[in-house]
């Protein structure tokens, strides 16, 4: 009824497997290159709307989604392009959506902030801060009542922790031990406001203990650490020991939205985080393991760039809605 498979889900791939690791790397590069191209298109003025981007945070979406099964779900936010790509939405359906085409994942009615695909386990992004938290708890309640083995990973930022919806949603998930992995991408800034201005205890994973469940802070720029933590969390949820709160420490390389130049981010802070860039770090690890050569890395990037270039050309010519589409899709 929600895409659940009847049998137990297939085992996830061996996290040491070379193809699996290259897959993680490819997804992170895909997210980075997608976001860079979208930024270009936005500044160029050919793409309508606004954008909230995730350059620098590629390891969180990639590591978490790789720990989920195809019939597991995610909820996302206004900063959801990375989550969508990691959950298996195609470059084309996303670019088409950004260009407002009827071939987009939401027929051009969602746009950047509401990216999603119900056939791929991603509900449309929820652009009200923390709005996805009670929603994810309700999805998990459904899984529990339907006796499926499914899990929902609920992405939100550090800013969401200040919302009442966070408190209400995690509390109910806790008292009913619901299968939700609460994934807080702590990038240190809620829009332009740094977390030390808005929370006395900046260690967000500590919140879990207050509600009586497990929380963990993880290096969110280390895709393997994220992945391992997300696997443990998802497994805990599947065995009735949910929910779990994962705080993933990461950093946004670009503005909160649109033309934000990030003047509120200190130079030394930016440099420190840029030196821990998740893609560069993982590439270094893969090279050290001998899994890949520098030429392979270039080839991956070139392949992705060409895929995106082709996608943009198609999206620019994709069919736009007619005026008759204005009033459809309001009611089921």
């Amino acid at each position: 009824m929600n895409g659940a498979s009847a049998a137990n889900p297939p085992a996830l791939p061996d996290p040491q497997d070379r193809d699996f690791l290259l897959g993680l790397y490819g997804t992170m590069v895909l997210i980075r290159e997608f976001e860079e191209r979208v930024k270009f298109l936005f500044l160029e003025g050919t793409m309508p709307g606004t954008i909230h981007q995730c350059q620098g945070q590629e390891a969180t979406a990639t590591g978490v989604c790789a720990a989920l099964h195809a019939d597991d779900w995610i909820t996302s936010t206004f900063r959801g392009h990375g989550h969508a790509l990691a959950k298996g939405l195609t470059v084309q359906e996303m670019l088409d959506e950004l260009f407002g085409a009827t071939t987009g994942c939401c027929k051009g009615k969602g746009g950047s902030m509401h990216m999603g695909n119900m056939a791929k386990g991603m509900v449309p992004g929820i652009a009200i801060v923390a709005g996805g938290i009670p929603l994810a708890a309700g999805m998990a309640l459904a899984f529990k009542m339907q006796r499926t083995q499914q899990v929902v990973a609920c992405f939100f930022g550090d800013g969401a922790v200040a919302e009442g919806a966070f408190h209400e949603g995690v509390n109910m998930a806790a008292i009913w031990q619901l299968p939700v992995v609460f994934v807080c991408e702590n990038n240190l800034y809620g829009a332009s406001t740094r977390i030390d201005k808005v929370m006395k205890n900046p260690r967000i994973s500590d919140r879990a203990a207050a509600y009586g469940f497990q929380g963990e802070t993880v290096d969110g720029n280390d895709v393997l650490a994220v992945h391992a933590a997300a696997r443990r969390a998802a497994e805990a949820c599947r065995t009735g020991q949910g929910p779990v709160l994962l705080e993933l420490l990461t950093y946004r390389r670009t503005g909160h939205s649109r033309r934000d130049a990030c003047h509120y981010q200190a130079k030394d802070e930016r440099e420190a985080w840029f030196s821990r860039d998740p893609i560069t770090r993982f590439a270094t690890q893969l090279l050290a393991r001998g899994d890949i050569t520098p030429a392979d890395l270039d080839a991956i990037k070139a392949r992705i760039d060409s895929q995106i270039t082709q996608g943009v050309e198609l999206a620019k010519q994709a069919p736009q809605p007619t005026l008759a589409d204005l009033t459809t899709d309001v009611f089921a």
């Binding site: 009824m1 929600n2 709005g131 929603l135 309700g138 309640l141 459904a142 339907q146």
Partner: peptide, 11 residues
Amino acid sequence: GMAVGAAMMGM
């Protein structure tokens, strides 16, 4: 919110 989420998942 939980009612909305559960409804979206088929309840």
